[in-house]
Design a protein around this nucleic acid. Sequence first.
DNA 1: ACGCGTCAAGTACTC
DNA 2: GAGTACTTGACGCGT
Length: 309
Amino acid sequence: MNIRLGYVSISKTLNITCSKTITYSNFKKNNDLNKLDKIIIENLNNLEKIIDYNIKNNIHFYRLTSKLIPLATIDNIDFDYINKYKKYYQKIGQKINEHQIRIDVHPDQFCVLNSTKSEVVKNTHKILEYHYNILEALNIKDKVIILHVGSSVLGKENSIKRFINNFYKLPSHIRKCIVIENDDKIYNVLDCLNLCKQLNIPFILDYHHHICNSIDNIEDYLADIFNTWKYIPKIHFSSHKANTKKDFRSHHDYINIDDFIDFLNKIKGLNDNLDIMIEAKAKDEALFKLTRLLKYNNYKFIDETTFIN
DNA sequence: ACGCGTCAAGTACTC
DNA sequence: GAGTACTTGACGCGT
């Protein structure tokens, strides 16, 4: 199988960020929309540089930051973050599509679709709409928004029901983008796989979360997991920061090659293609270190970041 | 230039 | 009910 590797948000090599922000309290002081405008343009320009870097290095898989447009999901600020910057989005999107870079987004902890608080769910809608708007402005065809099931208030069973109810209340254009990822504490691979089958949406396996919150015989479910995807399946891979209880769930700077190869052996032959998102603190440097180690272990590479398993 | 407390937002745990 | 941890890159104030 052909496996492509990806990384998240920031290139350590380039040492630039597209997540520059302004705090709400600071913005409120004088409602400085000019400053906000400058930050947005800086982020978009840096995103273009990162995409250029990805193209140059044959990186086909990349996660967009959720912080591209600061303050976009605050209730009482309304500003045009799409049409005003259309030229930027179009230019970046054209490069992404031309080079067939696969893009996804992963809203952070404040996005809780199954919250028991209606205000939180309402804000979750806004956060999802924001991510959709960005993907649409970039003209991304296969839009993917990765969510966790979320809260477990009133028990897992009730919480999954809340997720399903609120999922169907989402507008259909957003529903079509949602994929669910297992988490490291509550919702394990089986919980999520069953939920995804029921909702007929893809399930994204996070292997590190699975190690933290595991089920027996994951090998028996891998084919099913890949089958939830209509196109190339993708998974998340990271290594634990330390062996202590406190730091096991945290991400290491780099990927542990033995664990990675162990996983490669588990999935061998299950699919023709797979994309693996490398979630390591050293970002693209971790990705390239991993490719060097894979080459050292005799894996054959088709280009800089694509290899055969 | 650098360091450290803080940041809009959630959930879960302890006391 | 209040406080803290989790987690994260970046802000922004103080030195």
